[in-house]
Every structure is written in C-alpha cells, then in structure tokens.
C-alpha cells in the first residue's frame, strides 16, 4: 500500500513540475514573441496647394480617381497670368529699345571724345556709359520678370506630383485657391507601408531586415513584408513643454509596456488587394533568414 502511495505522489509531482515548465515556456512564447494585433496600414498623403493664387476654373478629376504622376488635377484662372505674361513681354521690348538707345549714345560719345577731346566733356561720356549699363541691367530685370510670369502661368495648372488617388476632394470650380493653402489631397499609392506597434518586451526579438507577415483584417489576406526600421523615440507622458522635466512623484505597482512603432515595408502586394490607409492588420515577425 505504501508503494502505491509513493507512485501516486510521484506521478502527480512529475505531471505538475512538467506542467509548470511548459506553462512557463508558453507564457514566455506568448508574451515575448514578436507578434502584434495592433498594426495599421499607413500611406504618404500629399496635401496639394497651388503655387499661385486665383479662382479655380477647372477640376478634371473626381473624388477617389486614380491619377498618374503629371496628370492635371486643377487649373487656376489663366487670364490674369496671360495678361501678366503680355505685360512682361512688353516690358522686355521696352527695356531692349532703351538699352539700344543708351548704348548707341555711349558709343557715340566715346568716339567723339577719342577724335576731339575738347568737343565733349569726360563727365558726359562717363554719364552716358553708366546710363547704358543701367539700361542693360533693366533689360535683364525685365527678362527675369518675363521668366516669372511664364512660371506663374505654368504653375496655374496643378499636376499630380505622385502616382496615386485623389482623396477627400471637397474643392469645387469657383473656389478661390490661396498660395500654400491645400486644395486637395493625393494619396501616394507607391508608398503604402505598415506601422506595427509592438510592446517593448517584444523588441529584442525584432531585427531590421527580418521578414514579416502581415494579415489584413479585411479578407484575411497575408502579405509579405520586411522590417525597415523601428522608431527610436516615442513621446514621454511626463514630458513638459519647458526646459525642466516634470516628473510625477508616483511609484507604479503596475507598469504597462510601452508600444514602439515598427515600420514594415510591403513586398509585392497582389493587384487585387486594395489597400487603404488606416486598415487594421496582425503582424508576425520571423527571425532573419540565415545568409547562405
């Protein structure tokens, strides 16, 4: 009977010890493995503002339309810029005529002085030469103003700077567009990436360049990715605006692991997968492939 008692005790003890070890491994695996449910698709958005002010006369795109780099997005009233261009051309013609007259005068005075030094004073020669130089400078000024007028006319047609999609188009024909005030946004469709927020406890397992798997909440598609890098700073909750640190005098019994953003580039996204910034995803990072 005593033998059975020992066996009974041993069987239970071995099972409990083994379970404790397995439970420990399980907990570590679950909490330290580099996986997160807190990931989202992010994209670069170009806030497109015109370089010149004016009335919007034409918007040849519609909301959510796909555009290629260089496509016309909106046009600002060209009449004013055409008039400015004509004005600048006239100014150039005027300055050319004046420069020609002034340089002819200067040459004539110089020749007269060379033939007969008593016929014209040195001051007059000097004055006409300086006037000719000033007229040449005025011509250059008028030419650069012509260039500016041409540039303004060109910039009144706003083109897409990237391949992508027009998004949240609220501007309409007839709006007044101001210099530097965004009129519409273009989503750069070549710039989709995933920002995965990992608990700091999982970071030691993450290597830059390691392959990553991204499962979108939408459709459960699995995309391949690569760890491009991890953020080296997050905002401190106790950071003060001034020069002095404001430290809360608290001792935390419970400490929450901070989340660090890890940037994951997507590789060969299938054509049928429609990505949108803000989509949720689950991310698992694998150890880096051993280089052969």
């Amino acid at each position: 009977m005593a033998v059975t008692g020992v066996i009974r005790f041993l069987v239970t003890l071995i099972a409990v010890v083994a379970a404790a070890l397995v439970g420990w491994w399980l907990w570590n695996f679950y909490t330290l493995s580099p996986w997160t449910r807190d990931a989202r698709v992010v994209v670069n958005v170009v806030d497109l503002a015109p370089d010149v002010s004016g009335l919007v006369t034409e918007i040849p795109v519609i909301d959510n339309q796909q555009v290629r780099k260089g496509d016309v997005l909106f046009v600002i009233d060209k009449d004013r810029f055409n008039l400015a261009l004509q004005q600048a051309r006239a100014r150039v013609a005027q300055a050319q005529a004046q420069a020609r007259l002034a340089s002819d005068d200067a040459n004539r005075d110089a020749q007269v002085l060379a033939q007969d030094s008593s016929a014209v004073s040195a001051v007059t020669v000097e004055t006409s030469r300086t006037r000719a130089e000033a007229a040449t400078a005025a011509l250059q000024l008028a030419q650069s103003e012509l260039g500016t007028a041409q540039l303004n006319l060109e910039r009144s047609t706003v083109r897409a700077p990237v391949n992508g999609f027009v998004t949240n188009l609220t501007a309409t024909v007839g709006d007044y567009a101001d210099v530097g005030t965004p009129v519409l946004a273009v989503v750069d469709s070549d710039s989709f990436y995933v920002a995965a927020y990992f608990m700091e406890t999982k970071l030691p397992e993450i290597r830059i360049g390691a392959p990553a798997e991204v499962r979108l909440m939408a459709g459960g598609r699995v995309l391949k990715g690569k760890v491009q890098g991890l953020s080296r700073a997050i905002a401190s909750p106790t950071a003060a605006g001034g020069l002095l640190a404001s430290v809360n005098p608290n001792f935390e019994w419970i400490r929450l692991a901070q989340r660090i953003p890890v940037r994951i580039t997507l590789e060969d996204v299938p054509a049928e997968v429609e990505l949108a910034a803000g989509m949720s995803a689950t991310v698992v990072i694998r150890p880096p492939e051993a280089s052969p």
């Binding site: 059975t4 066996i7 009974r8 005790f9 069987v11 239970t12 099972a15 409990v16 083994a18 379970a19 404790a20 397995v22 439970g23 491994w25 399980l26 695996f29």
Partner: peptide, 23 residues
C-alpha cells in the same frame, strides 16, 4: 486515476501540458 494523488491538480497539469503541445 488510482495512481494519481490529487485528481484535480493532476488534471490541471495535464491540461497545461496538452495546451503547450497544441501551441
């Protein structure tokens, strides 16, 4: 179960082992 001392404790340990195996 004749050879088990505390049946509930053993069952708990068994379950954790099986969970570890499944994972």
């Amino acid at each position: 179960y004749r050879f088990v001392w505390h049946r509930s404790l053993f069952n708990l340990a068994l379950y954790v082992l099986l969970l570890g195996g499944a994972v």
